[in-house]
Simulated assay, not measured.
Amino acid sequence: MYAIVEIAGKQFKVSKEQWLYTPKLQGEVGTLLTLDKVLLLDDEVGTIMVGTPTLNGVTIKAKVLEHTKANKIIVFKKKRRNGYKVKRGHRQDHTRIVIEDIVK
């Protein structure tokens, strides 16, 4: 069984006991989340339910494991023959969650 769910504006394919990194979510470590923006659901039988745009009555239970940061991304700008160079970087905030259950 798997589902496609929208988390913080991005779509993820999730299944039970899978962990994934999402954009930063509100909530402390150990908090249970209820994700209700389920776009697609596939049963064990092979029945596929597609929402218009979301499925009613289908929720996904997830647990927050930790809040982390991604690897550093370097942004380097240069204009040749002008002596202009700028080096900047940033690290994106992420939340690591585990999918505990898909409830129909």
Rank of each mutant, 00 (worst) to 15 (best):
G46P: 08
V64N: 00
K72F: 07
D93V: 01
K78T: 05
Y84A: 10
K79S: 14
T54R: 07
R81E: 15
K63R: 15
V64Y: 01
V103H: 05
K24D: 08
H67A: 00
V75M: 03
D93T: 05
L41E: 01
K61G: 07
E28N: 15
D93C: 03
V5Q: 08
Y21M: 06
A3K: 04
N56D: 12
L39K: 12
N56A: 13
K72P: 02
K79D: 09
E44Y: 04
D42R: 13
Y21A: 00
R80S: 11
A3L: 04
A70C: 09
E100G: 05
I99C: 06
V5C: 10
V29T: 08
Q11Y: 09
F12W: 11
K16N: 11
E17H: 14
F12V: 09
K69I: 01
S15L: 12
L25D: 05
L40I: 15
Y21W: 02
V45C: 09
Y21K: 04
D43P: 05
G27M: 11
K63A: 05
V14H: 00
D101P: 06
K13L: 09
L55P: 07
Y2S: 03
K77C: 07
Q26S: 12
V58C: 08
K104C: 10
H90I: 02
K72V: 06
K24A: 14
V75A: 05
V98Y: 01
F76E: 10
I73K: 14
Q26A: 12
I60A: 02
G83I: 08
K37H: 09
G27C: 08
G9D: 11
F76S: 08
I73V: 15
G27N: 11
K87Y: 03
N56S: 15
G46T: 08
K69E: 03
G51L: 04
F76C: 03
E17L: 12
I102S: 06
K78Q: 13
A3P: 03
M49E: 14
K85N: 05
Q11N: 12
R88P: 02
V14M: 04
Q11I: 07
Q92H: 06
E100P: 01
E100A: 03
P53V: 01
L39P: 04
K61M: 13
G9F: 11
V86R: 15
S15T: 14
K10D: 09
E66L: 00
I4L: 12
H67M: 06
D43E: 15
I74A: 10
I73S: 14
V50K: 08
T52Y: 07
I48Q: 07
I102H: 07
T68F: 00
V45I: 10
K16R: 13
Q18D: 13
K69A: 06
Y84E: 13
G30T: 02
A70V: 01
T54A: 04
H90P: 04
I74V: 08
V50N: 05
K77G: 04
L40V: 15
L32K: 06
D43K: 14
T54E: 10
I4F: 11
D36S: 13
Y21H: 05
V50A: 07
K63F: 05
V5R: 09
V50S: 09
